[in-house]
Design a protein around this nucleic acid. Structure first.
Lengths: 255, 255
DNA sequence: CCATCTTTGTGCACGCGTTCACAAAGACAT
DNA sequence: ATGTCTTTGTGAACGCGTGCACAAAGATGG
């Protein structure tokens, strides 16, 4: 529909780099903690440590927002909290719907991190008629039939999908058709959406698999180090169900 | 103490680029779906579409694993499933502990995506004595006191933290001390871990904030497009004190 | 066996993100 | 006012990831 501006041409000339945007919430969290402790100012070094990033990176990130620091002193905590909040759009109210109230959906509904920022759970939606009316996190669950009406009545533009994988695309299509333009997807599926709609994906299984890869690599290096004339460390656990990376399990060879 | 920078020495050795590793689970999922439909071979174009990536990127990713394709034909689905599984370390058994059995922890325990890959929930751990013994997802919850023993008895090297933010670092320290070397963190905190320990973070609030940023940007452009016949060059930047999306508290100016 | 057609594997160029290193800018003491 | 000291803001270099475009490789048909 709209001109191509999904994620490809992200860094527009006056735009903030995508990588920086992804870190702003991190800084905001660290700053909020400082604010609650009534710390008036903070240096890039201190704040970077609190946010778990490099100080040079932090300064460059902030430089995209403007010159909000004072040389020789640092950054005014309250002022920076406000500037980042505004930049992220958190000074306004964002009604959000959560679709799929299973274990995960319920956890999301109960998650306090939403309300503390500008997000407000406008409605919980589930396809199971037995769930309808049942309160979760103090909000009554509504049936999927009401989806379009809910989106429209509340002016919802952000939707969270926590349904099984099989239902995700269909739910996504309905959300988009009803006017939602940003989707946070927890279902393990690739969603296809029209241009102009943003999708972010959170996949628990994928994260674990990435960890497993590194874990295996660590075990391999450890084994290599041990074979290098070194006594196996006591903590060297790991069921050696198969060999190293060159495991000889044949599996199915292609013809 | 290495804060978040646990990935620096990665991609060395015979390394697969980190970006590629992050996509392998995606390919694996698409391939598994094809396998269940008994599709024998698949081209890079088809598979890329199913995984939601560019076909050139997919081919380059696979080239790091080896030459597993057949020119003019494509890739053997079963063979590729095995190769990627092996590369990710999913051919072995990964016992996992989940610490913090609140809403989210319970959702994770019930999540089927774990068991389907090589992951096995070895134990659920919670600090609340009232939870002890209570079964969640068919697994009895154990008290935090047992943490070290559980890790050791089961040879656990991957831990999932789903506790409140305040308890996360302490739990993390105990996990690491007990021998865990990979951590998936759902608590909204920056964990500091020693070198050699991998941490991946999943933060629901941050994802929403990133969406909000783009949503605000879209709204701004939309407004600018609507007022296309007016002031030429004012809409490019954020409206600082005008009728912008916020237009509220001016906040404190730094001295 | 040769010609043609399909699809892989990759060399290359480009752009984004990260990091270094330092000049500019302001605070503060004298 | 002036010098010193601290910390920001940024120019520049570098490395990684991405996408293009094409040659190499194998299948397939005559």
């Amino acid at each position: 529909m709209a001109t191509g501006r999904t994620h490809r041409p992200a860094t527009r000339s006056r735009g903030i780099p995508e990588a920086t945007v992804a870190r702003l919430p991190l800084y905001l969290r660290a700053l909020t903690a400082l604010s609650e402790r009534s710390v008036p100012t903070v240096s890039s070094e201190e704040l970077a440590a609190a946010a778990g990033v490099n100080s040079a990176k932090l300064r460059k990130d902030f430089s995209y927002l403007g010159s909000y620091g004072t040389r020789g002193v640092g950054y005014d905590v309250e002022y920076l909290v406000y500037q980042i909040s505004r930049e992220l759009g958190l000074t306004q109210d964002w009604p959000v719907v959560i679709v799929g109230i299973g274990n995960l959906g319920a956890a999301l509904a109960n998650y306090g991190g939403f309300a503390s920022r500008g997000f407000r759970v406008a409605a919980l939606i589930d396809a199971d008629p037995a769930m309808a009316g049942k309160p979760v996190a103090g909000i009554p669950v509504q049936h999927t039939d009401e989806l379009e009406k809910i989106i429209d009545d509340n002016g919802v533009s952000i939707g969270v999908i926590a349904t099984p994988a099989g239902a995700a695309q269909q739910v996504c299509d309905r959300l988009v058709a009803a006017g939602v333009t940003s989707i946070l997807n927890f279902a393990p599926t690739v969603l296809s959406v029209p241009d102009g709609v943003d999708v972010r994906k959170v996949d628990l299984s994928i994260e674990l698999q990435i960890l497993a890869f590194h874990e295996q690599r660590k075990a391999g290096e450890e084994a290599a180090a041990a074979a290098d004339g070194e006594v196996p460390h006591t903590a060297a656990r790991k069921q050696p169900a198969d060999k190293g990376p060159d495991g000889d399990v044949p599996a199915v060879m292609p013809a």
